Simulated scan of single mutants.
Amino acid sequence: MARTGRPKALLELSEDEREQLQRWARRRKSSQALALRARIVLACASGLSNKEVATQEQVSTPTVGKWRSRFIEARLDGLADDPRPGRPATVTAEQVEDVVVATLESTPKNATHWTRAKMAERTGLSKSTIGRIWKAFELKPHREEGFKLSNDPLFVEKVYDVIGLYVDPPESAVVLCVDEKSQVQALARSQPAFPMMPGMSEKRTHDYVRHGTTSLFAAFNTADGTVISSLHRKHRAVEFKKFLAKIDTEVPDHLDVHLVCDNYSTHKHPTVSRWLEAHPRFHMHFTPTYSSWINQVERFFAYVTADLLQRSDHRSVQALEADIRNWVKAWNEDPRPFIWTKTAEEILTSLTRLLKRINGAGH
């Protein structure tokens, strides 16, 4: 006689159990583990053997036996996961809500923002628990970011104007982002720096001696990334007009020149306006107030600062200017244009969402 193995316990379903198992098995939002267990029980109830169910669901035979037995023993409740070992949770939902609301809507006594230690003292929870709650809700009280919204009544028009030059530049023309990096200081450290070594970062003294300042005028070509630059000890309308004259000599005569500038008074001085009237191929495009982020030359200045000025050590303005000229020359040997990807509509939509979030947080 062929061996049939140990007889299986009879598995029968009530109508309510069958309907619930079928819902678990087909609902997309169900846990995949729970859906599998429901399918196993339904298949077993249809009369299939453990081995046949295992083949059908592509699981092991012991897995089928486990959930068959669990269902027979505890019915639908038996398909839930076993409680995990360890101490049960001691932080209630009300405590979590209290931490989140206090973080968002209050400040501690004699401080501008919450720290884990201060919030732990307030709530009686541990600092690590506070940290986990903040992480779960993406709260970072120790961090802040600066911003200033433009109050320019022509903000929308100026955004469309400037972004239009970036994404759809005019034909037979060059688009230059222009600005001055003023008050660049020639700083001499009081002591020589300690060079970087394995396990030790470079060390510099915090004190220095000032040896004068200079201003870097730059016109960043949005098409190819090249830069026309000039250095002046002052940054008045007179110097800006000289810089415009330099641009005029370096840009081929057959091209129109579109300049993207901020609203600094120097750029609108009568001296500059008269020069522009005498050179009709120049067209000025002003960025909205408090919107330096829209002027690509600001990103170029950030490279100058990070690569050269941040750790500079110059004993004279002449030495500083020589280094800046060499740095710009090297940049132009391998220029890097910036690829502008945001349209004016996308920028305005993002600002609208920000304003809604800010206004909502204030109520």
Rank of each mutant, 00 (worst) to 15 (best):
P7M: 01
K8V: 08
E12Q: 11
R23E: 07
R26L: 02
R27N: 12
R27A: 10
R28W: 03
A38G: 03
R39G: 02
C44F: 01
N50H: 04
Q56V: 02
E57G: 04
S60N: 08
R70H: 09
F71C: 04
R75G: 06
G78C: 06
L79E: 05
A80Q: 13
R87C: 05
T92C: 10
T92G: 04
E94N: 02
V101N: 01
S126N: 07
K127I: 04
T129M: 07
I130T: 05
F137V: 13
K140N: 11
P141W: 04
N151G: 09
F155Y: 09
F155W: 00
L165P: 06
P195F: 00
M196F: 15
M197T: 11
M200E: 15
E202Q: 13
D207Q: 11
D207P: 00
T213M: 07
T214K: 03
F220S: 03
T222D: 04
T222M: 13
A223D: 04
T226L: 10
I228M: 14
S229F: 01
S230L: 09
R233G: 04
K234G: 00
R236N: 06
F240S: 02
L244S: 03
D248K: 11
T249A: 14
D256K: 14
N263T: 15
W275N: 07
H279L: 09
T289Y: 13
L308N: 00
L308R: 13
Q318H: 11
A319G: 12
I324D: 12
R325F: 01
E333M: 14
P337F: 05
T349E: 14
G360M: 11
